[in-house]
Computed example of a mutant assay.
Amino acid sequence: MSKISQLLMINQNKIEILQKGQNGTPIIILTGMGCSFDEWYEVTESLSKTNRVIMFHRPGLGASEIRNEVRNTQTVVNEVNEMIHLLKLSEPVVLVGHSYGGLCVQHFVKKHPEKVAGIVLVDSTSVDLKVLDDLNLPVLNEGATDEFWMEKCRSYSQMKREELREVINPTLTKKQKLLPNDIQKRIMNFQINPSLYKAMYSEISNWKRDGDIIKNLVVYPDIPLIVISRDKEHNIKLGTMEGLPEWELRLFEEKWQELIMNQVNLTSNSKFIIAQGASHSIHFDRPDIIVQSINKINSFFN
């Protein structure tokens, strides 16, 4: 099994690429907003036994450079397309997208359908994400609006690493502490990079507009699709344990799951899966379901 981390020049930025494995259909995984590809260690270790797995840090994340370009899903589409070219991937790939990465996947497959063999959306951001703003959630929305996070990201982007370390005080979850020591260290350092928050500011600024743009593009190609949703009841339970009102949590989680379920209609060759016992971070809570889903997609054309 090969494991190569490298920097590629993509659209004038040095971009950090992770590759594992050498055989089988190429699998490209796009992480969520503000998330490191190191968080997907368990998933990529398993998949790389049979497939070539590729991940990258969008500009501003990890060791990837960022300039002053607009960070939106179209920019990510261009970067993934250039990466496919530079890595000489001649066959269609399996695209996997978590959260914001799933929104980018939805955009890519509409722009370059001939380059995609199958899709796995992991609790993916919906193209209709702006409807969540219409929910009456006075407690949940306190300190959780786009405007709030954009201001926080703007502030963090202007700090130095040591200032961020003091403000954020990064910690590892129980599951992250089970990862190899070098991965743990990388995840900790990932969070105290000012460029990360510069990227997030721009992504948040544009993602609702991106959703509208993606909706208005041509229809999906009729390729295999698996849509994975987090466990609604599990998340409601976690929220109530933190003292949040159950009625707000239920209202939000029911709308979120409705939006996820709507993604099943993107193709006629699709399947919906609820990751029992999983939060939004399904790659931590139920990596087995992600691996099984990707292998299921692979079985369609292998």
Rank of each mutant, 00 (worst) to 15 (best):
K177D: 07
Q191R: 13
S229A: 11
K175R: 10
Q6N: 12
I236A: 04
S155H: 14
R209W: 06
M150F: 10
N68E: 12
T267Y: 02
D38H: 14
R71F: 13
K160M: 14
M188P: 03
L259S: 04
I29H: 03
I289M: 14
M83T: 02
T267K: 03
R165H: 15
K115D: 04
K185T: 15
R52T: 13
R186I: 04
M9W: 07
L18F: 13
I289R: 05
V227A: 11
D285H: 07
K160T: 13
T173S: 15
S293T: 06
K215R: 08
Q22Y: 09
L95Y: 00
F301W: 13
L217E: 15
G62H: 01
N169L: 10
P245D: 05
S229P: 02
P26Q: 05
S202A: 07
N262V: 07
S48D: 01
R71N: 14
L225Q: 11
S293H: 09
S124Y: 00
G21T: 07
H107V: 01
G211Q: 03
Y41S: 08
P138W: 03
I183M: 03
E258T: 09
E142N: 15
S124P: 00
D134A: 10
P170R: 09
L259G: 04
S293N: 12
I260G: 02
L8I: 13
I4H: 08
I119L: 13
S90G: 05
T173C: 08
E16D: 08
S155Q: 09
W207K: 03
N181P: 05
L129N: 11
P221W: 06
I84G: 01
D285R: 03
V93Y: 00
K208N: 15
K296Y: 12
Q106T: 00
L89M: 12
H280I: 09
L103K: 00
K232W: 04
L8A: 09
I10A: 11
T44P: 02
N302S: 12
N262Q: 13
K49H: 12
L132E: 01
K110G: 01
L121D: 00
E114R: 03
S299V: 05
S2R: 13
I54G: 02
S270H: 03
P138L: 07
H283Y: 15
D222L: 09
Q12Y: 15
G118C: 05
T75N: 06
S46H: 13
L7W: 03
M150A: 10
M83A: 04
E162K: 05
V264Q: 15
V94F: 07
T25L: 13
T31Y: 02
F301E: 10
H98E: 13
V70I: 15
F56M: 14
N169V: 10
I187L: 11
D146R: 09
V77D: 03
K271Q: 15
K271C: 11
Q176N: 11
S5H: 12
